[in-house]
Design a protein around this nucleic acid. Structure first.
Lengths: 241, 241
DNA sequence: GTCTATATACGGATAGAC
DNA sequence: GTCTATCCGTATATAGAC
């Protein structure tokens, strides 16, 4: 589906091509967890899932997930304790459902751009797509980034493996571009992860500075590109102090 | 004290010049909080403070601060509940002591390099120093980054203001270098914050990849420098897909 | 499908002994 | 300066009514 996008695309263009957005994510969530959810009426289930997860993101953001209580969640959603347990198996499994969704997203993303021949173009598309996805699904990625370390060991490891996998993919694309090689490309790939994650981590900052996601993505891509192209020409020496 | 450093310095060189390190930080901590600490024998106090804060970092790292209980802390330190309360006033104040220390550090850091005439050199020194400080005081910065959002509103605001202050300082230095101006320099300054914070946030990753802090700092500085210098020459156009 | 009521356990903080 | 014992509130999870 991403075949229709130009190499340099905006959030609005990405939205038309992405199979995952704010509205259909609840259906995806329900389908990935239907064995655990006892509520059978689909429309009711979708509505309450949205309430539960939106409230979870809000509460986890201000209190942290472990400090958030299921009573807080009942108050915010309007459900009772008993009603809530029709949708989740336990508090831990609520977090696991979020982790599972984010892992699913990061597994499918790189494949969307596998058809692009130039490694550097492909890398830039992945960076942009990651930033735009983290705009669309911000609460999900933010939650996993900040809360996964507090969950059980298997879930921590999954989050780490997910990051390493995308980073290795980017490093391979940088290597394939022929501009940088082994230690430099690995470090630059790590910097790329940090730069794209900054959008969902520090959204408060960019909002209050009136920086939109298109400008942010363009700035990240230009920064990374200038590092790759500096390998072409000798760098200016800094003035000695 | 930083006057003896060359513009491009290593961790080992920075260690000789910095007034704050792993061993004297306990005395600084005690002095900044002596009104609240009832234990009067200084050597006993220093020893137990180190135990308490080291255990807090370890527990907060795996459980999160709010999920960590004071009973966990007693188990790890060997102190009893009563004994612990000779050093802290409450669980919340334990977190506040950590926040206070980190804020203090970020307030003094920029002044260490105010004597450097070239804005670009000064900025590179600040980036390096921030990375090296986050190597030396990693648990402190990591704690504040990940836990401050879950604490009371005043402490959240202090952490945000601290970040914005350093970011504005970097943006001003980039502007003063004359290479980039307003929207681009603000974005690049934000990227700088993200890049330097990556060292304490993802230490597990760099350790397992055998990347040391000197190589990391050098890579960050080169990345930022190449972006600034790309403003000098026209950039290569990417291949259209 | 959702509610109220409750079982059971553990949290932070303090009092008072030594 | 540190300990043990305890107060009081609140947490997750479930049972059973409607």
């Amino acid at each position: 589906m991403m075949e229709t996008l130009a190499v340099s695309f905006t959030l609005a263009e990405f939205r038309k091509a992405t199979p995952l957005d704010e509205s259909n994510i609840w259906a995806v969530l329900l389908d990935r967890n239907n064995s655990r959810i006892s509520v059978k009426r689909r429309d009711t289930a979708l509505e309450n899932l949205e309430k539960i997860f939106a409230a979870t993101f809000g509460l986890a953001n201000t209190l942290g997930f472990r400090a958030m209580t299921l009573r807080d969640l009942c108050r915010e959603t309007g459900l009772s304790m008993g009603g809530l347990y029709g949708y989740i198996e336990s508090k831990d499994q609520l977090a696991a459902m979020i982790e599972d969704m984010v892992r699913h997203v990061s597994e499918v993303l790189p494949g969307w751009f596998a058809h692009i021949p130039s490694p550097q173009d492909q890398m830039e598309c992945i960076l942009r797509a990651h930033i735009f996805l983290s705009e669309i699904l911000q609460p999900w990625l933010y939650f996993v980034f900040l809360e996964s370390r507090n969950l059980a060991a298997p879930q921590r490891d999954i989050a780490k493996a997910s990051e390493l996998s995308m980073e290795a993919h980017i490093a391979a694309l940088i290597n394939a571009s022929g501009m940088l090689s082994s230690p430099d490309s690995a470090l630059l790939a790590a910097h790329c992860m940090s730069l794209v994650q900054d959008w969902h981590l520090k959204r408060w900052k960019f909002r209050s500075a009136n920086i939109d996601v298109d400008a942010f993505a363009e700035s990240v891509v230009r920064l990374v590109r200038s590092r790759i192209e500096s390998a072409r020409a000798p760098a200016r020496q800094p003035v000695a102090g």
